[in-house]
């Protein structure tokens, strides 16, 4: 098993082994198993397209995580993999929302997985995704340079339409492709107006700021639209940047709602916190893919 599959399976099995029957497996991954992919590619070149072992090839397909989880749990129901880069996890969330509308009372495994591999790091580095200078993760937001720091991980969730015992509700989600910050600001405002119930406040704002000075403008215009008393949290100095970092952010939102506590190193704007019930999450990937999620606890 490649790294992404190991992480994905490792994070999925506790959900699979929870007491409920799972009616489907929905995974988002930007890259799937790049480590296996390039290992197989290197075999092709090294052995001049001779007789190759197929293991790396089979493991390299993006659907290997969902497939492996399905196989290990003998789950023959809905099984799919969304791979739309910085919207891979967001489309998985939208898929889960639709499946639950369609099949009330069912339960789904929802997850986001991406790995750091040597090869993918090289390609992303050539593409300008990472900072050229060496920095400490604590200084990520104080740098004024392009790129972020590499991240990896897997975050999985048991989702259903039962409010009782739920950690939180994913109340709304929307996504947008744009390189224009005013369009993003409009969408941000519209998302809040449409989805925040009248009389409620955003108790906490989670910002996907990545330390990349090329994408900072999007975070700046969005943050300006918030009430100045709204506490702001950043997380990419912990998770690093990758296509499905928003799945880690959703886990963080759940964790904060459960603990009602936030480590101080995550606070960008410290305001006296009363109880946190409503969280807004905005994330941006590579200056083009934007996502908005509203997470609530009653």
């Amino acid at each position: 098993m490649g790294r992404a599959v190991r992480m994905g399976v490792g994070a999925s099995m506790p959900v699979i082994n929870s007491a409920v029957a799972i009616n489907g497996i929905i995974i988002g991954t930007g890259k799937g198993g790049m480590e296996d992919c390039i290992k197989f590619l290197n075999q092709i070149v090294q052995y001049e397209e001779g007789l190759l072992a197929p293991g790396n090839f089979v493991q390299s397909t993006s659907n290997a995580v969902a497939a492996q989880v399905g196989m290990m749990s003998k789950n023959k129901s809905y099984n799919t993999t969304h791979v739309h880069r910085g919207h891979a996890f967001e489309n998985a969330v939208i898929d889960a929302v639709m499946q639950l509308n369609e099949f009330p009372g069912s339960n789904f495994l929802l997850g986001g997985v991406d790995e750091i591999s040597e090869y993918d790091y090289t390609i992303e580095d050539l593409d300008g995704a990472y900072k050229k200078e060496s920095i400490s993760n604590k200084d990520l937001y104080d740098t004024d340079s392009p790129g972020s720091i590499a991240g990896e991980g897997a975050a999985t969730f048991l989702v259903n339409d039962q409010e009782q015992n739920a950690i939180c509700q994913i109340a709304a989600i929307n996504i947008l492709h744009s390189e224009d910050e005013s369009q993003v600001a409009d969408m941000f405002q519209q998302f809040i107006t449409t989805n925040l119930p009248a009389g409620e406040n955003i108790d906490l704002y989670i910002s996907g700021e990545s330390g990349d000075n090329r994408t900072l403008k999007f975070y700046t215009v969005c943050e300006k639209l918030l009430n100045e008393n709204t506490p702001v949290v950043r997380f990419k100095h912990m998770s690093g940047e990758n296509a499905t970092a928003s799945s880690w952010a959703l886990w963080l939102a759940c964790h904060i709602l459960q603990q009602q506590n936030i480590p101080s190193h995550m606070m960008k704007r410290v305001v006296e916190l009363s109880s946190v019930k409503t969280i807004l999450l905005y994330n941006n990937y590579k200056g083009i893919q934007h996502s908005f999620m509203l997470i609530r606890k009653n």
Binding site: G32, T61, S62, N63, T80, H82, N91
Partner: peptide, 8 residues
């Protein structure tokens, strides 16, 4: 909404 699916 834009998406890409890969289920082989």
């Amino acid at each position: 909404i834009i998406n890409t699916i890969n289920t082989a």
